[in-house]
Design a protein around this nucleic acid. Sequence first.
DNA 1: CTGAAAGCGCTAACAC
DNA 2: GTGTTAGCGCTTTCAG
Lengths: 347, 347
Amino acid sequence: MKKKLSIVDIANSLNVSKTTISFILNGRAQEKRIGAELVERVLKFVEEVGYKPNPLAKSLRTGKSNIIGLMVEDIANPFFASIARLIEDRAYNNGYKIIYCSTDNNTEKTKDLIEMYRDRHVDGYIIAPPEGIEDDINSLIKAGFPVVLFDRNLENVNADYVVVDNLFSTYNATRHLISQGYKNIAYVSFLSSQAQLTQRLQGYKNALKEYNLKPIVKEVLFNRDNDVIMEPIRTFLKKRKDDIDAILFGTNHIGVCGLRLFSELGIKVPDDIAVVSFDDYEVFQLFTPPISAIAQPIVQIADNVITTLLSKLNSPVKDKSVKTITLSTELNIRSSSAPAKSNVVPV
Amino acid sequence: MKKKLSIVDIANSLNVSKTTISFILNGRAQEKRIGAELVERVLKFVEEVGYKPNPLAKSLRTGKSNIIGLMVEDIANPFFASIARLIEDRAYNNGYKIIYCSTDNNTEKTKDLIEMYRDRHVDGYIIAPPEGIEDDINSLIKAGFPVVLFDRNLENVNADYVVVDNLFSTYNATRHLISQGYKNIAYVSFLSSQAQLTQRLQGYKNALKEYNLKPIVKEVLFNRDNDVIMEPIRTFLKKRKDDIDAILFGTNHIGVCGLRLFSELGIKVPDDIAVVSFDDYEVFQLFTPPISAIAQPIVQIADNVITTLLSKLNSPVKDKSVKTITLSTELNIRSSSAPAKSNVVPV
DNA sequence: CTGAAAGCGCTAACAC
DNA sequence: GTGTTAGCGCTTTCAG
């Protein structure tokens, strides 16, 4: 096992100062007017012996770690997992590694995590922020760390955001259901004051209002255990299933829980209840009947997030300007929201 | 913004040597017989000012980074994402952070990744290894790094493994199909010489052999693009769908591709073709009809992986012994493999 | 153009 | 019991 060599080793072998080596390796040879021949020789030798600067030492010295902290709600959720995958690729291609964690939307946990990342000298942050984390994020920003938030807005945090147009998405989806002839449209989602969820709720309400329809909202508490999530929805469905002719689900997670209950309770889609869910997902495409869904542009989200972060990371001057990128979703209409048996209303 | 303080700062403030601080903070006060009163005072002060040792400096000095490298095939695959989630929790609870990456089963990419991790002084490795990576893993082990492999075995690599009993799983699933009266059972999977896949194929063949049935195997190349995966399967199904009465899918990914094609080609499950797939997954549970699946014990896998790694990480003496943990799967029988219309064979 | 030397913050021999 | 000091490997100022 060949011992790991350091910059001094190679400096000695070449009878050159380690400063020179450092300059050459960091591409500052030109600037420092180091002889082309020497540069050549050093590079060749370094290549030959496979020398690699110790990134830890480098980090200690420069304060940069080349690590990006990625904080999502739950890495096992396909929406976040897909985004993580896309971000990973771009980050690695740009010389950054990713440390990830799942916040579970838990504020305290997230605070700890941010602190840990900070201790670790993470260079930049990509966060799907839980509620109540505003101060911590602001302090990150004030300390000069590049931060990109996604999936949801935070009030009073002046950061870069990549989000989708939640309000219009559910507004549009609800109108779609109305135009298909549904009149008693329920909205089932998680109870939360997070921006993306309140907006989705609002979009739904706005559409109903236009048509003078009455909102039927069922919000449940988030829980890591699906059974706990399903229980209140089960009760709700049992009680109300005959008054309701359509449901809009606020997230993929809750949508899947809903579908499970449909099977269990013998509810037929779309004859008994028509369905649209937020987030598109394999399950929705393959379900019988296929479920109409509001597809978030995952690739674009990931792309914008990482592009924004990398540009902040690479810009030598601290650019204090922030931007909010709002992407639009696509309503994938499938048979779960086929026209109602009764009658169709032009919209 | 309060400047980050270092160990000297707090040593100075307290008029104590930084060595003493270091000892106290590392719990070696007793051993070094440092006055209980002083220890108290230091701890209190450190707490008060919120001092945190710089982990980078610590790493540089000690060579330990408290980071675990997690290499999976694809973090967006629900099987790996779920495992990543479980591993993450345990790692963080034990003071370790996780750097992840997706290998895409690409040997060259994985080699690079291992090298990167090594440069980064990752303390331990959790890897779902691609083919051809044996030498690199062996060199990792020889260099004394704790390595836990999972999901698949590597010949000639003497490491700790956490795997499932692939051979018995498909053997058992195939027998199940036979017992339900199916006779022309195809096996559709990825073409690969990775142990988990060859074993799955073998289990299928073994079962057929016992009943003198002829194997019908379709193996396709892996590709990140689903359409490319589906194309050869589409051709296969079109040509053979009338000779086949059941299919066993080798992975969740290929199973989902298969299901998509069934819809497209109008193949009815289980009347035209009965189905069992490796890996259980929401899509399979919610599909109509629900798809029988070989469920891997995800929680147990993750648990064994991280427990094994942590114990290696914490054991002061380099334990050269390795163990292979083989977990058993569960065959979740659902209506996709209901008894064949024709006749049922006792098994 | 090149080199000496001063740290980055921490640990751990080795004195005192 | 406590303090001095020498690094871990690298970057970067400042002299030559």
